[in-house]
Amino acid sequence: MTNPKVLILRTAGTNCDAETDTAFQLAGAETALVHIQNLISGRVNLADYQVLAIPGGFSYGDDIAAGILLAIEMKHKLTDLLNRFVADGKLVIGICNGFQVLVRTGLLPGISASDSSTPEMTQRTTLAMNTSARFECRWVDLETQESPCVFTKGVKPRVYLPVAHAEGRFTAPTDVLAELEANHQVVFRYAESEYPINPNGSDADIAGICDATGRIFGLMPHPERFLTKWNHPRWTRLAETQDTASEEGDGLVIFKNAVNYVKANLP
């Protein structure tokens, strides 16, 4: 079969598209950077792809709130396309600003299993301003949770990844949080509740979640910034103790999982 095809969505203010592109290419995917105008106009057909990636950045300047304008644009102009894409069993990943967009479209965490009256594409959680009230860039320890997420199969129990955001505090009503826990939709947690390990004050230290199927995944940390071991902020300290055979960074496996899933499940 041909390599899995990944559509990396761009718009004004997207800025992690190049490294996300590199990550998927290293993972063995065929990639295309596509401006949302080209999806709306129909010049590019989303159905031709098996993975939709929404990279980090400041879509439309994060005016009003992070990711909201792109989310509205997608809801108003691409709802049918997106619903069909998801219904076809395909994969969606949103990183940082992309996570903010997925949460604001309601694609994450997805509709409530217990309440079928909620319409699709309804926002039920949010990513609010960090408790530090400012943009921060730092590496954090994450604990990988038991979850149906197809992107994190075989990911180490503890992963170290960078975050860089101002609006990353995951928060939701108590019942939604309980539902996420019950469905094992929490994919990554910050390893401790204390700042700065939990860099933004997220509820239940949540750093990333998936939908109930595990095929839609959003996270604040940036796995695409840890593709080789020289991206690790302390590689000069680790060099002699670490297994030096592998030059791969811990972020790459997430993209490889997506490619492998498509190869195995989406002929």
Partner: peptide, 22 residues
């Protein structure tokens, strides 16, 4: 320094902040 994104574009090898606790 923390308020600046020094990791974007994915190419950083030596950070502006280094050491056991970065």
């Amino acid at each position: 320094i923390r308020q600046y994104d020094h990791e974007v574009q994915g190419g950083i090898v030596i950070n502006p902040l280094v050491g056991a606790e970065n």
